[in-house]
Amino acid sequence: MATETKDIVSACVDSYGSAVGMPQLCGEWMGNQIFWLVITLVAIFLILSRVALPRIGAILAERQGTITNDIAAAEDLKAKAVEAEETYNKALADARAQAQAIAAEARAEIQADLDVAIAKADAEIAAKAAESEAAIAEIRAGALDSIQAVAKDTAGEVVAALGGQADEAGIAGAVDARMKG
């Protein structure tokens, strides 16, 4: 390179600074190009493998983990909700059954009380009826006696009014005979 003239700096560039042929095929630059390229590639490789890629990988893994955890937590909560609903339904059914049992028991108790009361009332009514019948019979018997007495008196008076001599025993016997008739 040192042997070249001042005008022509290199074999690939003419004195006007324009390319001679394809600069891509200029052999004297290639060492320089490869040198800097290798440095660049090593630098990018180190940056990527030491910093960028582990970091992005960690971010993506962390996000995946968060999403998985959130889904698991959501499923957990859903299961809990279902469980709570089941418990509630069970409690409701239990309460309903208990209420029905209590109602049935109360009904049976009331029925028993009612039956006792009815029986007692029936007995009382029967007793009252018997008593009343006895009273009526007594009254009826009393009435007959009174009628007999009235009839005897009336018969005596009638006999006396007709001018007859009332024979008390005769009248009583006649009245008795009539009454029995």
Partner: peptide, 10 residues
Amino acid sequence: FHPMDQFIVK
């Protein structure tokens, strides 16, 4: 035209 001048290494 100097279409290749842009590729010169300097």
